[in-house]
């Protein structure tokens, strides 16, 4: 097993030669009223291809910040992130955008669909953006996600669970190497949330994508391969 928690360290270290995601000594602070407010204080983390990790922690523990940094939506103060062997912390904005559309899939708590596009168009948006639209795969995703009869509808005509399934499908349509999910079921009731998570994990496995998911629910976290907890900006074993 590639990921293992060490009791004497705040890091989860990768022992394999080539992890899909490798985060080293990552630090980030935000300006606050009394000077800089550290959010991450040297986080180390590794994730192998095809595996999943749940990132847990209290509100404000920095788990979303870590996810944003991995997604290249924000830039770190110190430390590095390697995805698929490339150091993403060294990329400029254009490079990070390219990384997101080629290598990553992102699912947020809010569904983040384009309200003026149909479900079908939303589903294929990222795949088309990166020129990797695969109709057979899209059809299969739609079918698995139970969206095949809803493709011509608009997001506002869908229930929350359906909308989040569209978001999952959109993130997986270009077959990303790594799926990042930030409380993907946070807006859904328990049953619906479980169903969406099942689909997310199942389809990620089918697509061969590793999953890094932020959640505050230990119950949900338990369904993933590994778990890690952020406490005051440091990673600890759960």
């Amino acid at each position: 097993m590639a990921i293992r928690a060490e009791s004497n360290s705040t890091s989860i270290r990768n022992e394999g030669a080539q992890s899909l995601l490798r985060v080293s000594r990552l630090s980030k602070s935000y300006p606050g009223p009394q000077g800089a407010l550290p959010v991450l204080r040297g986080v180390d983390l590794a994730l192998d291809a095809g595996t999943s990790l749940a990132l847990m922690g209290e509100s404000g523990s920095g788990k979303s910040t870590l996810l944003h940094l991995v997604a290249g939506l924000d830039s770190a103060d110190d430390g590095s992130i390697h995805i698929d062997g490339r150091e993403t912390t060294a990329l400029d904005d254009e490079g990070r955008a390219a990384l997101r559309r080629r290598t990553l899939g992102v699912v947020f708590q809010q569904f983040n669909l384009v309200p003026s596009l149909t479900v079908g168009d939303n589903l294929s948006l990222q795949a088309r953006l990166v020129g990797r639209h695969d109709p057979a795969w899209s059809d299969r995703l739609a079918q698995r996600l139970g969206l095949e009869h809803l493709l011509d509808r608009y997001p506002e005509q869908l229930s929350g669970g359906q909308q989040q399934r569209v978001a999952v499908g959109r993130a997986l349509a270009p077959r990303p190497r790594l799926l990042l999910a930030d409380e993907p079921t946070g807006n859904l009731d328990e049953a619906t949330g479980d169903a969406v998570l099942d689909l997310l994990l199942e389809l990620s496995a089918t697509a061969g994508a590793a999953v890094l998911m932020v959640t505050h629910s230990a119950r949900l976290a338990g369904r993933l391969d590994r778990r890690a907890r952020l406490v005051a900006g440091r990673l600890v074993a759960p």
């Binding site: 254009e94 390219a98 983040n112 990166v130 993130a171």
Partner: peptide, 15 residues
């Protein structure tokens, strides 16, 4: 703005 946010999040470049 939400559309632009989504597009950026899924990797559309600023340019």
């Amino acid at each position: 703005l939400p559309i632009m946010r989504t597009l950026r999040a899924i990797g559309a470049s600023l340019r």
